[in-house]
Design a protein around this nucleic acid. Structure first.
Length: 206
DNA sequence: CAAACGATCGGCT
DNA sequence: GCCGATCGTTTGC
């Protein structure tokens, strides 16, 4: 396995990093139990000018503080009181950029992912249920055992239990679609920016 | 200190 | 398609 290193995340163009994350593999390994999936859908958030970004205007709060760290750590927060949303912090220190991971295609640890999501055994699921298991940011975080208290966790430290790795899957530009981000209607003109990217032919996208 | 509000999901119609 | 669940974070009084 080749864990992505700090130089991947430290680049200052979060839109490029977001597109390049498609096809990479998000992994968690807690208590020796490995679960992983291919990233199929992402969204970019970019302070200070992006009103949809929690750190809009470079506003620092206890929650958003980790977004200002050097790229390569997780920003995880609770949404709607029940969903833990996983983001990757990117850019150099002081630049609050992040990529929200919105969907993955299950690759390893199907049984544990089903268990965490309170689904029946993977083999017994309908195609629709298989898709729902890890499609949507709250769903994939639950499947991977991700929790907001892990916010700030390094993705590059060799000892860290969560990381992103390269497994040789390359997504060509022509296979990437883009559109406005989901659920950011409050963000004025920023709501129209096409900063959501997904793998065109993947069924693991909404 | 109180209250409003989400970068959502799943179940039901 | 619509609606209710549910709680940490933020902001304003």
């Amino acid at each position: 396995m080749t864990r992505l290193t700090a130089d991947f995340y430290l680049r200052d163009d979060v839109l490029t990093v977001a597109r390049e994350l498609l096809g990479k593999v998000l992994v968690t390994q807690f208590d020796g139990q490995r679960t992983a999936g291919i990233i199929t859908e992402v969204e970019a958030y970019r302070a200070p000018e992006d009103r949809a970004c929690h750190a809009y205007g470079n506003r620092r709060t206890p929650r958003t503080e980790v977004m200002f760290r050097p790229g390569g750590c997780a920003y995880i927060y609770l949404c709607y009181g029940l969903h833990h949303l996983f983001n990757v912090v990117t850019g150099p220190e002081g630049m609050a950029h992040a990529v929200l991971i919105r969907a993955i295609e299950p690759l390893e640890g199907h049984a544990l992912m089903c268990q965490r999501r309170k689904y029946a055994a993977w083999e017994s699921l309908s195609n629709r249920q298989k898709m729902a298991l890890t499609t949507g940011p709250g769903a994939l975080a639950q499947a991977l055992g991700i929790h907001a208290r892990q916010s700030g966790q390094s993705l590059t430290d060799p000892a860290s239990p969560m990381w992103i790795e390269e497994q040789g899957l390359r997504i060509a530009d022509k296979d990437i679609a883009c559109g406005p981000r989901i659920g950011v209607d409050y963000a004025g003109e920023c709501a129209a920016w096409e900063w959501r990217f997904w793998i065109k032919q993947s069924p693991f996208v909404r």
